[in-house]
């Protein structure tokens, strides 16, 4: 199990325990974390699980893949630290991860 902290656009924090191998999106939806819609359920088809990765975690989380980068290119409110949370797989390395959610998903 690894811990993830979600911070919504108003600064409210939610901590959840994620099973390693689950995506950050799955951990969020299963625990009903606000700010992540995940309309497509993790198929990388909708860009409604957009998160901002905390600066300290950027290196460990890494860059988006090609498909994901294409989606992010046209999503709203994209920053350098934007990722689709369905494409981030949890592991011991990411224990303690901090991400923020946008005010609304595309």
């Amino acid at each position: 199990m690894s811990k993830i902290t979600f911070i919504d656009y108003q600064g409210n924090q939610t901590e959840v325990e994620a099973t390693n191998g689950d995506s950050v999106m799955e951990a969020a939806t299963q625990n009903d974390v606000p700010g992540i819609d995940a309309d497509c359920g993790g198929a990388c088809a909708c860009a409604t699980c957009h998160v901002y990765v905390d600066a300290e975690w950027m290196d460990k989380v890494g860059k988006p893949g090609d498909l994901e980068a294409d989606m992010l290119e046209v999503a709203d409110g994209v920053q350098d630290n934007s990722r689709l949370s369905c494409q981030i797989s949890m592991s011991d390395d990411l224990d303690g991860l901090v991400v923020s959610t946008p005010e609304s998903q595309y």
Partner: peptide
């Protein structure tokens, strides 16, 4: 088809 950015636009 394998063109997510075009889909989003």
């Amino acid at each position: 088809i394998n063109a997510p950015a075009e889909f989003m636009k």
